[in-house]
Amino acid sequence: MEVLILLIALSLLIALGFLGAFIWATRSGQYDDDETPAMRMLHENHPQKAKTE
């Protein structure tokens, strides 16, 4: 049963990893603008036409 203690510590460690990811995302500005990326991603995958003229 004592192995639970180790497993719980591990689970908490993983959760901390996600918290770290969240903090990194916030710090890199991903929450600063929540509207433009939604528009941008619709465009980026669109095949580019070469300069026509």
């Binding site: 036409k49 300069k51 026509t52």
Partner: peptide, 8 residues
């Protein structure tokens, strides 16, 4: 816009 291929 069009001369630079930005017709989209």
């Amino acid at each position: 816009i069009t001369r630079n291929g930005l017709d989209d």
